Computed example of a mutant assay.
Amino acid sequence: MQEGIITKGVGGLYEVKTDNKTYQCRARGLFRKKKITPLVGDRVKIDEIQDDNGYIIEIMNRSTELIRPPVANVNQAIIVFAIKKPMPNFWLLDRFLILAEKENLDVVICINKVDLDSSEEIEKINKIYEKAGYKIINTSCKKDLGINELRNVLQNKISVFSGPSGVGKSTLLNMIQPNLQLKTGDVSKKTSRGKHTTRHTELMELENGGWVLDTPGFSSLELSFIEEDELELYFNEIHDLSEHCKFRGCKHNKEPKCAVKEAVEKNEISKFRYENYLLFLNELKDNRRY
């Protein structure tokens, strides 16, 4: 019996890296009976090894489990979006931040392709998310900006790289460690969206210590795993002001004398962050009706 980590899973076949080598493994039927699916990032025990093949017989306890992308034991999320080509989708960014916050992950927001826009616009976005409590790294692969800083935050972490297609996740990882040789693609001129180049989730070991997961781009994220009353916990700047609202349990929507709404009017809280909060709040209310 040997212990290892699942680095890739395609069609029911899993690559498990041990201290000595990588094995191709299948999961025992008992996992199907228990409705447990092995995930990339799982620490596992394998047995019945013949040549380079074996069976997963045990999945060790997970410290974290993400739904989308489906990975285990990640402790840091690098959320990547481009300042242009494609244009940033803050609605999607805020949804992923909620998922990362729910799993208690360390979060780094990477604003890529900063060579394509003015420094004023980039600084405006930096301030909004820094005020919300997030670390921001501005990067440009063409100008080799921010790559060393990004490389440093990956050290000794298991990090998931995620974000919409076309924002440059694979290109960034190739800059960080060229021998990864990940496929990259351009943004479609017709749709202004990225073309999918990452087809599956794969865990890759870094030379300076740590692991990264390059994941397929995503376009939606369900919020059904949280309650209405929880939502403000995942908007740090809103939660920090909530204690100053007149009414306990204020949802910061239609209630009078709401400190959050007053802060939005004074431009102390980002208007689009607040609008996203309201969109998500209404979505959660609608979900509870069915």
Rank of each mutant, 00 (worst) to 15 (best):
M1Y: 09
K8I: 04
K8P: 04
G11N: 06
D19M: 07
D19H: 06
N20E: 11
K21V: 10
A27E: 04
G29C: 13
G29T: 15
G29L: 15
L30V: 15
L30P: 00
R32I: 15
K33E: 12
K34H: 08
K35T: 11
T37N: 14
L39E: 00
L39Q: 05
D42K: 04
V44N: 00
I46W: 01
I46P: 02
D47N: 15
E48G: 00
E48Q: 03
E48C: 00
I49V: 10
D51L: 11
D51A: 11
G54I: 05
Y55W: 14
T64F: 10
E65M: 15
I67T: 11
N75Q: 01
Q76K: 07
I79A: 01
I83A: 01
I83G: 00
K84T: 02
K84H: 01
K85L: 05
P86K: 07
L92T: 00
R95G: 04
I98S: 00
L99F: 07
N104E: 09
V107H: 05
V107E: 04
I109D: 00
C110W: 06
I111M: 14
K113G: 03
V114R: 03
S118E: 11
E123S: 06
K127F: 11
I128A: 12
K131R: 14
A132P: 03
G133T: 08
I137C: 09
T139L: 13
T139F: 14
C141K: 07
C141W: 08
K142L: 09
K142T: 07
L145T: 13
N152R: 13
Q155H: 12
I158N: 03
S159R: 01
S159Q: 05
V160N: 02
F161V: 08
S162W: 08
S165F: 12
G168V: 04
G168P: 03
L173Q: 12
M175D: 11
Q181K: 13
Q181L: 13
K183N: 12
K183M: 11
K183T: 14
D186V: 13
K189S: 09
K189Q: 11
T191S: 15
T191L: 15
S192G: 10
S192I: 10
S192R: 13
T197P: 14
E207L: 12
N208K: 15
G210V: 07
G210Y: 03
V212K: 01
V212Y: 00
D214N: 13
D214L: 14
G217W: 09
G217C: 11
G217P: 08
F218M: 07
S219R: 12
L221C: 01
E222M: 02
S224A: 08
F225A: 08
E227N: 13
E232S: 15
F235K: 02
I238N: 02
E243C: 10
H244G: 03
C245D: 02
K246H: 07
K246M: 06
F247P: 00
F247L: 07
F247C: 04
R248I: 14
G249M: 04
K251G: 05
K254S: 04
K261N: 14
A263T: 08
V264R: 02
N267D: 09
I269H: 01
F272R: 07
Y274D: 00
N276M: 06
L278M: 08
R289D: 06
